[in-house]
Simulated scan of single mutants.
Amino acid sequence: MPLLIAVVSLLGVLCLLTLVLTLGVIRRLREHTKLMDALYEAIDLMGGPPTGLATLGKGELVGDFAATTLDGDQVTRELLPEGAVVAFLSADCGGCRDQLPEIASWAAGQDRRQIVAVLDATSGDPEELVTALSPVAQVIVEDELTTVGRAFGLKVFPTFYQVSGEGRLLAVEGRISRLPVGSPA
């Protein structure tokens, strides 16, 4: 019986220690998120894109491009409406998959014509992305991100752009929620 009490006590202490460590990690992650948000805000105040996301920055003109959505509609720089959001996602991108529920939820509360999802199909099957985004966005699947990706100066996935009616970049972010229009629905 004393052995059983000792084992149960030890197990209780280990559980308590694990709980304290877990709470410490969660607290540290929240601090890290606040620091990253502050960094993105500082970069935005300087007028440039978040480091490494794109070669084009706020205020720059998107290059010419022409693409066809899965619905057969044409999308060009001139056809993008004021405030349109263009999201570049890839099938093998962990950050893209992690943000997919947030992106789909946000886009569901928007006008579908305002959202363009450009999906890279070179490194995997984009079917999961297509299924999630087709009801809420205009979806373009490219075998090679040369046309639209180059026009936007894309460097990494995921990257989200907000564009003016004249084709100028209003914002470039690594998360949909950091765009001026990207607050959760």
Results as ranks from 00 to 15, higher is better:
Ala38Asn: 13
Leu45Lys: 12
Glu82Val: 03
Glu78Pro: 03
Asp92Cys: 02
Pro135Ile: 07
Gly57Ile: 02
Ser90Arg: 15
Cys96Ile: 09
Val116Leu: 15
Val141Met: 11
Val136Ser: 11
Leu35Gly: 03
Ile43Ala: 01
Ser134Gln: 13
Met36His: 05
Thr69Cys: 02
Ala66Thr: 15
Thr76Asn: 05
Glu82Ala: 08
Phe65Tyr: 12
Thr76Met: 09
Pro126Arg: 03
Gln110Phe: 00
Met46Trp: 04
Ile43Asp: 04
Tyr40Arg: 14
Pro126Lys: 10
Leu100Thr: 09
Glu82Asp: 13
Leu100Tyr: 05
Leu89Lys: 01
Ala42Trp: 01
Pro81Phe: 02
Asp98Met: 11
Asp92Asn: 15
Ala66Met: 10
Val116Phe: 06
Ala66Pro: 00
Ala107Arg: 03
Ala54Thr: 03
Leu100Gln: 07
Val85Trp: 00
Pro49Tyr: 00
Gly83Leu: 06
Leu56Asp: 08
Val85Phe: 00
Asp143His: 09
Glu31Cys: 00
Met36Cys: 01
Pro81Thr: 08
Leu61Pro: 04
Asp73Arg: 14
Thr122Ser: 15
Leu45Arg: 15
Ala132Arg: 05
Gly95Cys: 03
Asp44Ile: 01
Thr131Gly: 00
Ala121Lys: 01
Gly124Cys: 12
Pro81Asp: 08
Leu70Pro: 09
Glu41Phe: 00
Gly52Lys: 06
Ala132Gly: 03
Asp37Ala: 12
Asp44Lys: 13
Val86Gly: 12
Thr131Val: 14
Gly94Ala: 14
Thr122Lys: 14
Glu127His: 09
Asp71Ala: 15
